[in-house]
Amino acid sequence: MEGEGERERKRGGRVCCVCNEARASVKRPKTLQHMCRECFFHAFESEIHHLILNNSLFSPGERVAIGASGGKDSTVLAYVLSKLNRLHNYGLHLFLLSVDEGITGYRDDSLQTVHRNHLQYQLPLQVVSYKDLYGWTMDQIVDVIGFKNNCTFCGVFRRQALDRGAALLKVDKLVTGHNADDIAETVLLNLLRGDVARLSRCTSITTGEDGIYSPNAYRGFAREFIKDLERIRPRAILDIIKSGENFRISTTTKMPEQGTCQRCGYISSQKWCKACVLLDGLNRGLPKLGIGRSRGSVGSENGNGSKVEKSIQGKQCGTLDF
C-alpha cells in the first residue's frame, strides 16, 4: 500500500529485536519479544523443526496424513510441515486427510479451505466420508434419530473419524494441529473433571448449533478464564501446558488397560467400541441403543425429552479429548 512505510516512520513503530531492521509486528507471548513477521516465522518454524528432530517424530519414506479441517490450526500445520519437509529433506510422503461428515452445507466452507491448502502447499488431498467410514452420513443419522439426539453420534464418530480415515488409507502416521489455548484449556478441564461432570448435569446447556456441533460448549468458560489469565501474564498459557505435562509424567495412578474393539479393531476398553455400539443400534433400527447406556435408562422416544437430552449432552461434554 502506498505511503505505508512513510506512515510507519512517522509513527515511530518499534523495530524487531531479532534483526534490528524491520518493523516489529507481534509481541510474542512466549518470550514477550517484539518481532517482525519474517523473524517470527523463522523462529516458529525452526522450533518445530527441532521438536521433530529431538522427538524423532518421523522416519524417511513414511506416509504421513495431516488431519485437515480447514481451520487455522490444521492450516498452519499443513504449511509448516510441507515447508520443513521440503527444506530439510525429511523424505515424507505428506497428504491432507479431511473428513466429510455428510451434513448438507456444513462442510462447504471448510472443505473449500482444505482445497485451497491442497493447491497452495501442493499436498495431495484425500477426503473420506462418514459413508465410507461408517456406512451412514450424518444427515441420514439425523433422519433416523432426530435432530436433538445426534450429539452423541457426532462426538463419537468425529473422535474416531480421522484415525479410521488414516487406517483406511494405510498411513504410517497421522498428525493433527492444536493451538496452545486449546491444550491449556484441556489441561484445566481435565484437572476440574470431577466437578465439571456434576456441573454439566445441573447446568442447562442450550441446544442449537453450538450444542450439536461443538459438544464441549461449556469449554467457553475455561477459555475465557485462560484468555483473561493471558492478559495478565502472556506466558500463563504455556505454563499451564507445562504443568499438564508434568502432571502426566508424575502420575502414579495405573492407567486403565486399553484393549481393542472386537468388531473393528479400534482402541476400546469395552468389547465393542462406542462407534460400533451406536452403529449396531442404527443398523438394527434401534438408534438409541448406545446412547446413555452407562447412565442408566434413557427414557422412551419423546418422553422426558429435555432431561434426556441434557444428560446426553452432559455426558458428551464430560469427554475431554480433542
Binding site: 510507519e8 513503530g13 516489529a24 509486528s25 509481541k27 489455548d181 484468555k227 493471558e230 492478559r231
Partner: peptide, 17 residues
C-alpha cells in the same frame, strides 16, 4: 476487546502500539 480477539493496526499487533 474480549480476550482472544487479535487486533492489528496496519498489520501490526496493537500490543506494540
Amino acid at each position: 476487546v474480549r480476550p482472544g480477539v487479535l487486533v492489528l493496526v496496519n498489520d501490526c499487533d496493537w500490543e506494540l502500539s
